[in-house]
Design a protein around this nucleic acid. Structure first.
Lengths: 124, 124
DNA sequence: ATCAGTAATGATAATCATTATCATTAACTT
DNA sequence: AAGTTAATGATAATGATTATCATTACTGAT
């Protein structure tokens, strides 16, 4: 039970994320999707971001402040500018790191690698 | 100006983090430090965690839910259990990844690598 | 040692992001 | 077309963290 139904709101959120590359916050997505679906509520955006993430259709990126979202789920890495807090994609290969560290009896199923520094604009 | 003064509260927060290895939340630190300095306030814990982090004496680990803190600042990596949300140290070498990706004009000064999966207890 | 200046504290209100609630709307099944 | 219930919109509630402010207590100079 709890069958998934179609909703234009969810479609609009997903499409918005798939068409942009700036790793928006939930608020950013809300403001953008509002243009296509003016009646949409911020709560609906949060609901669908969570749902889409659990379906594996989008990525959530925790950053220390507001979470960012990414509609492109292929394996890639991100950079956060310490100054302007912008999040960028980095063009680097999969680092595929260790999966069986010493003295660890759990199971590793994934990793996230975030780079920090100054973006071209903020480094002056 | 804004000279740093000594405070037993700050000392107690730092010492607490240096003596433990469980990556506590601010609340965890508060409850623990309260035993040594019963009058300490949660606000003071947050204040000093932020200050100590900016001094480079401790690490803050964003995890998607409450931030965790680490009193051991040598280069090492962490694992988060998706089930119980525990954060563990991993015994693996520095991955020292790329510092000059293609098509990137900023400056990379650091990275954080977090592994996900199930800890030994939660994998049953 | 005492004093003055001001950083740090404790208590609590405020903020911000996110989640929960609930009455209403709208997909889907028949 | 009718009934079931997932999804929505509006908003209240929550949880983590930060801001405020009156009071306390370091510290450097007297």
């Amino acid at each position: 039970m709890a069958t998934l139904r179609n909703s234009k709101q969810r479609d609009a959120v997903l499409k918005d994320l798939q068409l942009r590359f700036d790793h928006p916050t939930a608020e950013d997505v809300y403001l953008s999707v509002k243009k296509a679906v003016p009646s949409i509520s911020l709560a609906t955006v949060y609901r669908n971001l969570k749902l889409l993430e659990s379906e594996g259709l989008i990525l959530r990126i925790p950053t220390g402040d507001s979470d960012r979202y990414d509609g492109h789920t292929h394996n890639h890495y991100h950079f956060t500018c310490k100054d302007c807090r912008k999040v960028l994609d980095l063009d680097i290969a999969d680092q595929n790191p260790v999966t069986h560290p010493k003295d660890f009896d759990g199971t590793i199923t994934g990793h996230s690698l975030m780079f920090f520094g100054l973006c071209s604009r903020c480094k002056k």
